[in-house]
Design a binder for these strands. Sequence first.
DNA 1: AAAATAAAACACTAACTAGTGTCTAAAACT
DNA 2: AGTTTTAGACACTAGTTAGTGTTTTATTTT
Lengths: 212, 212
Amino acid sequence: MKRKAAAGTIRNKERSKEKFLDAVGQILETKGYSGLKVNDIAATAGVDKKMIYNYFGGTDQLIDEYISSLDFWSNVDGQSTPEITDGGQEFSKQLLTQQFDYVSHNKNLQKILLWGVAEKRNSLRTIADNREQNGEQLFSQVADPYFSENAVQYRSIMAILISGIYYLNMYKGVNAETFCGIDLTKEEGTQQIKGALEKIIDLVYENQNKKQ
Amino acid sequence: MKRKAAAGTIRNKERSKEKFLDAVGQILETKGYSGLKVNDIAATAGVDKKMIYNYFGGTDQLIDEYISSLDFWSNVDGQSTPEITDGGQEFSKQLLTQQFDYVSHNKNLQKILLWGVAEKRNSLRTIADNREQNGEQLFSQVADPYFSENAVQYRSIMAILISGIYYLNMYKGVNAETFCGIDLTKEEGTQQIKGALEKIIDLVYENQNKKQ
DNA sequence: AAAATAAAACACTAACTAGTGTCTAAAACT
DNA sequence: AGTTTTAGACACTAGTTAGTGTTTTATTTT
């Protein structure tokens, strides 16, 4: 006979699992991925570490479950695209500036991005794959048709710009504040970066328009 | 009475110090900064770890001395700039593509760049400061005068492009091969990225030329 | 050649790490 | 109400880590 899981006010499996997942997020945000030790996670959650092994099988599985629960790229989907008549020019600019703000304000995402270039891990690969899949929608549906034989060039340019957004946000405030003389910790600096992103897109589309 | 340091074929302080510094570089390249443990460094060097404390004062000082010994940015100086008549257009393109190749082939630099966004450390800050100083020469001497009121925009664009170069090279081969559909592990992909960098510079200069 | 000095080997401690076995008591079932 | 099950507390082991004290011995000095 199957038995319900304990859900009392003192002993509650689901609540404890949540506590562990929350603890992972909290430690990740404050100490980064290298701070994710079993003992610390258990202490932060306020639940015995034994439960990590019982519920998840181990620290790695807990961490993977945490990572899988994140959904960073769903906000960047090609479906929420209204009428596009400019080949995606405005959409591209919005995507980049929104990505900048999003990464800039999401410390957790910054840590995950860092983790993603620091360590091999299946769940991190999945995150990268999801980003690629979401992006592919945008490229194949909007940009590729417009840029036709220059489609790969547009993709390359977007790769550089998005990578730049990632790096600049990981970079700021760790061992420096400025990059190429731009103070990334100041509102003025971030505005200039966002302006530059938009400028590059404008130039790229202008250049493409001329050819048509 | 002062005494010469031991310089025999078996006991040799300077040679051992070199061995330690070499070991740090070797471990950094293969395992990254998180692999820099005293015991491993000593084992790799083939010298007792006690000597790390005797010679350098500790692991941190050894690592700092290693980092300080690096000179990544000397290859990018504004002095080696010949006659510039195009406002630095060709120079900018060369700088970016050369930086791409340099970072791409220098695994050690990639690890240092990663380290620089992962941990606060004085010697890493010095590296960042040096890069900023070297870049400042280029900007103030070549680009700022040419771009005049758009000087900050040029700097912002360069910040994004260089950051993009850094990130893409840290990114490739860890948890993914492609970014925006560009395969960064293939020669074709890197050529496309370099081409895109040059294209952006061309567009930026073209745009500036029109205004003058 | 003998004495002095410093390079380096070896052994040890203490702190922290991941993971597990045992026991208790709260919650669910009969 | 009594029994069963399992959430959770506690204690323990084993491995890894940084750092140090002691001893040996190669090299330099006298």
